[in-house]
């Protein structure tokens, strides 16, 4: 099972890498120069809020633009918008149910206002592996053996993020965010399994988008 997990993780990583390269090339062709890596995210990931986990990811800006709104005679309001590719990996621990590990690249539309408040909307598609604790099996002879049981899934994700910068003194600003999200993993009985996560995290910006 460990060998299969390792192989599947490698395959997933390759898929993420190829997707990243493809999207980078595509966006360069379509919208010009991408913005490169723009940030790192580290967060508490609560499956159904209370079952603890962790998630880390990086932001890779694919495209960025801004909109300037005039407010009065001498004031302007700049809204920054961008498309960000954000591969992430994480895990969660749901006691007496399962432990989950996932790799999910995310694609999101990000909007930042001059005061540092931002929101993004996005989707993701990736790989989820679950492991069920304390599983036993009765053999035909009646022996009870402990067995390892887990399942692989293709998982889709949709989310909204609300955040705010807390240190905007320089390019390496930090922001806090809250990110409710819904994941749907297939295949399973009857079709798939849903999960709700609440992500509370920190984004460390590497450079301005």
């Amino acid at each position: 099972m460990k060998k299969n997990v390792s192989t599947k993780v490698k395959i997933s990583a390759h898929i993420v890498g190829c997707a990243l390269l493809f999207i980078n090339l595509f966006m360069q062709k379509v919208v010009g120069q991408t913005t490169g890596f723009t940030g790192v995210n580290v967060s508490y990931l609560g499956e159904m809020v209370t079952h603890p986990g962790i998630k880390v990811g990086v932001d890779y800006g694919l495209s960025a633009w801004s909109k300037v709104k005039a407010e009065g005679k001498e004031r302007e309001r700049k809204i920054s918008k961008s498309i960000v590719f954000s591969p992430s990996l994480g895990s969660f621990y749901h006691k007496r149910y399962q432990t989950g590990f996932f790799i999910i690249p995310e694609l999101k539309y990000l909007r930042v206002n001059p005061k540092g408040f931002y929101y993004d909307l996005g989707i993701g598609l990736g790989y989820l592996r679950t492991v069920i604790p304390n599983v036993y099996e009765i053999s035909p002879s009646g022996d009870i053996n402990k067995v390892q049981v887990g399942y692989d899934y293709l998982s889709s994700l949709c989310f909204i993020t609300l955040g705010r910068s807390i240190n905007r003194q320089n390019d390496n600003s930090m922001s806090l965010f809250v990110k409710p999200q819904f994941m749907y993993a297939i295949p399973n009985f009857t079709y798939g399994t849903g999960y709700f996560f609440l992500e509370l995290g920190v984004n460390l910006k590497i450079k301005e988008t």
Binding site: S91, K95, T99, F101, P133, N134, V135, E137, V149
Partner: peptide, 30 residues
């Protein structure tokens, strides 16, 4: 952290004991 998660999942164990207030949870693969 990943190691800790693996530890939780693979090595968390329930006790099958005779006690007045048992609370033992396990799964059966059938």
């Amino acid at each position: 952290y990943i190691f800790l998660m693996l530890a939780f999942s693979f090595y968390s164990c329930e006790k099958f004991e005779f006690t007045e207030d048992a609370d033992t949870f396990y799964h059966l693969k059938v």
